[in-house]
Amino acid sequence: MTDEKVQSSDLSFPVIKRGSVSSLSLYEVTDYELDILEQGSPAGIFLNFGIFLISIGLSFTLAVTTVEIANDRLFIIYSIVAVVGITLGVILILLWFRLRKSTRHVCTKIRGRIVQEVDTAEKDSIPEDPASVG
């Protein structure tokens, strides 16, 4: 029995250091909003692939316009790659522009809940007539 007490007293507990915080805000989040935040926005991927495809399309356009290509099949392939690259790149950049604010919008909506509550609480706690306080 004394061995058990000695072993349990040998355990060292971690030291917990706490810094004071002037205020703490808790936000209530719905399951739907949590799912949106967890998945993140696909906008970054759209932007990356859009820039990539526009670069490829412009490179092939430059190659077709500046180099004399004797083989017709190669000219057609280069032209198709250029048109498809620029078209898909522009579409992806337009998608990025439309979807880039989805996660930010959800966060703003969540933060807006507490701002409204704080504003109404401050109005209740501040007296309207300073002369009546004294």
Rank of each mutant, 00 (worst) to 15 (best):
S41H: 01
N71P: 02
S25C: 08
P127F: 14
G44Q: 10
R100K: 11
M1S: 12
P42D: 06
V81Y: 01
D119S: 15
Q116M: 10
G44K: 13
I110Q: 02
W96L: 02
N71H: 07
R18A: 09
R100P: 03
Y27P: 00
R113K: 15
D35W: 10
Q39R: 14
I76L: 13
I69G: 04
V84E: 03
L11G: 05
R113Y: 07
D10N: 15
D10I: 11
A131T: 08
V29D: 04
S41L: 00
D119Q: 15
V64R: 08
I51W: 00
S8A: 13
I56K: 01
T30D: 02
T87L: 14
G50A: 04
D10V: 09
K101A: 07
L11T: 08
G85Y: 02
A43P: 04
I110Y: 01
L95Q: 06
I16W: 00
I114R: 13
V64G: 00
D72F: 10
D3L: 12
F97Q: 07
I54F: 04
P127S: 15
P14C: 05
A43D: 05
I77A: 09
S8T: 11
K109Y: 07
E4M: 09
C107N: 11
L24K: 14
S12Y: 06
Q7E: 10
I36T: 05
E38K: 14
V84L: 13
L53R: 01
D35I: 09
P127G: 12
G85W: 01
S9M: 11
G134V: 06
V83N: 07
E33I: 00
T108V: 14
K123E: 13
L88I: 04
Y78N: 12
L95F: 09
A43R: 03
D124G: 06
L62I: 06
R18N: 07
T103C: 08
V90F: 05
L34I: 01
K17W: 03
G40P: 03
Y27V: 04
P42S: 06
V83I: 15
T87M: 10
A131P: 03
G40M: 02
T66D: 04
L58N: 09
I56P: 00
S59G: 06
S12F: 06
L11F: 08
I110G: 02
T65A: 10
S59A: 12
T120S: 15
C107L: 15
C107A: 15
T87W: 09
